[in-house]
Design a binder for these strands. Structure first.
Ligand code: MN
Ligand code: MN
Ligand code: ZN
Ligand code: ZN
Lengths: 126, 126
DNA sequence: AAATCTAATGCAGTTTAGTTGCAATAACAA
DNA sequence: TTGTTATTGCAACTAAACTGCATTAGATTT
């Protein structure tokens, strides 16, 4: 059912994502907010923000959960699908503003698409 | 340094993968071989087989590690890159024998590519 | 075939991401 | 201001994966 109450902690996390444009892992967010809220609260707020279509989540290289802002999604429809890129140097994770070309799927139908790349980001490559 | 000794357990796991053509998770393999070898042994053999270029591994939906046979890879060069598909009905995970179209990466360089799809497989769709 | 070397194994313990149950708290509407 | 209940904090729990170390068993040499 998503966010119903704009609590102090919810505002805090929303404010955080409104500034940053990169993705953050649950682990990073827990560390960042450790003095302001409980780890369980971070997990639960992230869940709700995803359900609301405000954030999207995906799995990183080591099986960690990552979160980033959605563009034009809602609780009904999650339309913001794109590749994610993690830099092996600086560890930053970016949402790539590109479409994903689907392979030939024969008689399969698709629910979710995860495209995760690693390598060196533009900054670390220069 | 990979496999140096063809132990009973190594032969067992190699034999298992030589028949099946689908991917298996570490958890599934541990369960399957629980009477024949220790869970730690399964993890370690899988690690070595990946290092050798005999298996490749990738992360599934719930952060589990999956393993499948490689085609034409070696310890030096891992060339077998393709999408993976997990059926939400029967849970089977398939290697799709297709190439992955890379998005425009600007000044980024690539180390690894992971493309993971979920949906209904051909069997469950018919 | 026996002795030797050491990679590989089993086991128990550890780490860590993520979840759960429940009592206390704080949004928010009446 | 009061009452309702969504949300939080806390502690305990779960499960995948990893580690250290003593023991075992491939492989190689004699
Ligand atoms: Mn994204
Ligand atoms: Mn594969
Ligand atoms: Zn970088
Ligand atoms: Zn299926």
């Amino acid at each position: 059912m998503g966010i119903v109450r704009k609590t102090k902690s919810v505002k805090e996390i929303l404010a955080f994502f409104s500034t940053k444009n990169e993705a953050k892992s649950a682990v990073q967010l827990i560390e960042f907010f450790k003095d302001k809220m409980n780890r369980t609260t971070v997990y639960r707020i992230l869940d709700r923000l995803v359900e609301e279509g405000i954030l999207h989540s995906f799995n990183g290289k080591e099986g960690l959960k990552w979160y980033a802002k959605c563009q034009g999604c809602s609780s009904e429809h999650h339309s913001d699908v794109h590749p994610h890129f993690q830099c092996t140097d600086c560890d930053k994770v970016e949402c790539l503003p590109t479409n994903i070309a689907l392979p030939n799927l024969n008689n399969r139908s698709i629910d979710s698409v995860d495209f995760f790349l690693t390598g060196k980001c533009a900054t670390c490559n220069s």
